[in-house]
Simulated assay, not measured.
Amino acid sequence: MAKKEDELFAFLAGLDIEVSTRRHAPLFTVADSQALRGEIAGGHTKNLFLKDKKDNFFLVTVDEEAEVDLKQIHHLIGASSRVSFGKPEKLMELLGVVPGAVTVFGLINDSEKQVKVVLDAPLMENSVINAHPLTNEATTSIASDDLVRFIEATGHEPVILKVSA
């Protein structure tokens, strides 16, 4: 059973990671979330749930404004072939979220460590990163160093790499 928002916050508290969360109407796209700019400081994320032909899964987290060349990214992230978007069923199975709520915090649900996480280097230059806390009805702000600590605590090894154009 996928963990929910309250379990995520308890996990973060157990790591002594402070976050702040702001509730809002459901956001499904980057364009939706940009209406909140100025109200929530820091880097805002766009998350790509990708798979290659060998069913290797990747979560690529970039700045909301970043452009990613999906025809070339496989060379950068270690995929065995060109990538495509993962199916919603796999997204729910592995990260416990639905399309529109894809988030780096979903790694808390990947207990089998089937998803490789890639954080875009320019995004990580922000001192604060914003992401959905397993629901697209809120945005959680976390220090970038604490985000890395969270990812490592889930048993994933974050790869920080420039993947955006």
Rank of each mutant, 00 (worst) to 15 (best):
V68H: 09
L119G: 06
L36P: 01
S111L: 10
L76R: 06
L95Y: 06
A101V: 05
A165R: 14
I160M: 12
A79C: 12
K46L: 02
K3D: 03
V118L: 14
R37H: 11
V97G: 03
L107R: 08
I77P: 00
F9C: 08
F57D: 06
D120G: 09
F49C: 00
A165W: 02
D16V: 01
P158S: 07
L95M: 12
G96K: 13
I77D: 11
S33I: 04
G100D: 12
G100T: 04
T21W: 03
Q114F: 04
F105N: 01
F57I: 09
P158I: 12
G14P: 11
P99C: 11
L36C: 05
L147W: 09
A13D: 14
I17H: 05
I77R: 07
H156L: 11
K113Y: 11
L12P: 06
T154N: 04
L94F: 14
L27I: 01
H74V: 06
N47L: 13
E64Q: 03
S164V: 09
H156E: 07
L95D: 05
A101S: 15
L147I: 03
K116C: 10
F105C: 10
K53Y: 05
A10D: 08
T135I: 14
L76K: 14
A35C: 02
F105R: 05
L36Q: 03
S33C: 07
A153R: 04
F58A: 06
L76P: 00
L70P: 00
L91K: 01
S84F: 06
K162I: 10
T139G: 03
N126L: 07
S33Q: 12
E157S: 14
D52C: 12
S127E: 15
I160L: 11
E157P: 00
S84P: 02
Q34R: 15
D110K: 09
S144G: 00
D120P: 03
V30F: 07
K90W: 04
A66M: 09
G78P: 10
H156F: 05
M124W: 13
P133D: 12
E112Y: 06
P88V: 13
P26R: 07
E137F: 04
A25T: 11
D145T: 13
E125F: 04
V102H: 05
D120R: 09
E112R: 10
G14R: 00
V163I: 07
E64L: 02
L123K: 10
H74I: 01
D6R: 12
S81F: 08
L12I: 01
I40D: 06
K113R: 13
L94V: 13
A138W: 11
V62Y: 02
V115Y: 10
I17E: 05
V62W: 08
K113Q: 15
K87R: 14
T29P: 02
Q72S: 13
P26I: 12
E125I: 03
M124C: 15
D52R: 09
Q72E: 10
P88H: 09
R37Y: 12
E7C: 04
F57E: 08
E65C: 02
I142P: 02
I73V: 15
K54C: 08
L36W: 11
E112S: 13
A10K: 07
